[in-house]
Amino acid sequence: MEKIKFNLNGKDVSIEVDPSSRLIDVLRLNYGLTGTKEGCGEGSCGACVVLMDGRSVNSCLLPMANVINHKIVTIEEFSKSKAYECIKEAFSSLGGSQCGFCTPGMIIASYALLKKNPHPSEEEIREHLSGNLCRCTGYEAIVSAVILASKKGEGLW
């Protein structure tokens, strides 16, 4: 066991865990942050994506040792932001969320893209979101939602 210090959702936290623990388990079990989902446990589906220092990462593949001194933001905290509101509205108005299991990860990944590239082309969106699988929407509504968010959310990222 090690004392792992990191910043979770804006607060500095310190937790006594094995450094090999997966971030997803610590989020879901120790902090009760169940908005982060496990769809495959091997980084293929993206349902577990969270932000680490503003970049999208698979929390199922992150050992806690790698989280030390980094900023982790989950959907629970991100959903309080204006940027979330903008992306969510776009997802809502275009139908980007169906079963909802991929949605938190998809929204976080979309934000990470817009932060890096506020005006992505359709191709760039498809490339960036290719690590986030969705079986309901055929990606059509998700891709158009990101385009819409990028138009409406000027300055939010």
């Binding site: 094995d18 079990l29 980084g43």
Partner: peptide, 16 residues
């Protein structure tokens, strides 16, 4: 960790 964590994977909630 993106390879090791897959290779050493345990059930969800348990240490690799």
């Amino acid at each position: 960790g993106t390879d090791v964590m897959v290779q050493r994977r345990n059930v969800a909630g348990e240490l690799p």
